[in-house]
Design a protein around this nucleic acid. Sequence first.
RNA 1: GUGCCUGUAGCUCAAUGGUGGAGCGCCUCACUGUGGAUGAGGAGGCCGUGGGUUCGACCCCCAUCAGGCACCCCA
Length: 425
Amino acid sequence: MVDIIRSVKGTRDFYPENMAVRRWMFDKIRTVSTQFGYQEYEGPCLEFIDLYAAKSGEELVKEQAFVFSSPGDDLLTLRPELTPTLARMVAQQQYELAFPLRWWSIGPFWRYEKPQRGRTREFYQWNIDLVGTESVAADAEIVAVAATFFKEVGLSAGQVRIFVNNRRLMDQAFSQLEIEKDLRPAVFRVVDKLDKLSEKEWRTFAEDSGLTGIQVDGLSELLKNDALWRESEELVEFFALIKTLGVEDYVEYNPKVIRGLDYYTGTVFEAFEIGAQSRAILGGGRYDNLVADVGGNALPGVGFAMGDVVIELVLRDAGVIPAGLGDQPQVIMTVFDVETLPASMRLAAEIRAAGMRVVVYPDVDKLGKQFKFADKLGIPVAIVVGPDELTQGKVTVKDLKNREQITVEKESLIEQIKKFLPSPM
RNA sequence: GUGCCUGUAGCUCAAUGGUGGAGCGCCUCACUGUGGAUGAGGAGGCCGUGGGUUCGACCCCCAUCAGGCACCCCA
């Protein structure tokens, strides 16, 4: 093979087959988002780096963002996340917009990471936010959106679970353990490590992080307490609402869910695949001063983000992606010889006028070859118009799957094709 | 950014340091108005790339690029 200029590391090519799956996933996202009354929006893919300097995790901007200078010497970045853009868009029109606003978006993002399975440098992300209310009902609604998405794509509560916790509750608990405020970020990391280390290693790690033995004991107990949520009025109300919304099977309290990002202030949640893999699918939570960081009035909100890469792997492994997705043609018009080509093209136009996807075979080839081509593309119906048909004013319609064919009057062509087409789902 | 594993035909993978193979796929023919089977042929490779060791390298060493796994981090 001649050398082909390779694709950029960490990017993906979407061949029609993959594109069909992506289209299907995105359609599900759209369906669920709009069902809950959210409106689609989109921001630019390029932003000034200053937008992210305001907040975001330090590492996200400094080490994971694609930053470059434009010909005009501006420092630009390919957006690594949407939240700062959302904050700006809201701040710019804060006196025009009707709050609470429900917005959703899906688009490309870039992070300079080491690519591996489930992680690329260019990916798509679904963002959905409910901004302008502190109500617990908003938290519950957002989580219900996530749960409904799982239902919609065919993932059961046995396959995925949304784990919920509350930052305020944890802060309160940490205070009882007399863990100082400036130690909290380190403690979050300790919490995060619990399932990744052995108990002994975890202890060591916790003490190295600055916790006393008594605090480690307390923390260990705390993180085993699945009933801790009862001590939080917010969470009690939250879980009651989740039940009302009918998605309680998907939602569970988990004291270990903390989330890395600093801007979360209340409810936090993460959805995981259940089972051996246990991949993280989406994450989000409540933030109370989204807009203030970019110069607007502080606005509370709640939302989450889901990347397309992991969810696709989960959906594939779960076997819930339907077959027969895609926009391949429904009918192939074979070409018998040069003389009959115009007749074939004319017929194709008629079938298109009836609303079907039709291709005309572009060369004069043996019929067998034309059928084989149709097979490969998964086209279900073929039409043959040779000299015999033309002189009789008829058309042959062939069901490629069952290998049946029938020669009919031209007038009943469309009807006959419909009989052979697989019924739409 | 760190550690480990892997790069051989379009795909999946073999090949003690001594002339690179298989299965599937592809093309042609048996089958000049009918495709999933069968049979017979055929095409297709600077063995990821660049150095080094050696009489000789797909094989050993180094570097580099790419992919995977575990960290890190997170979606």
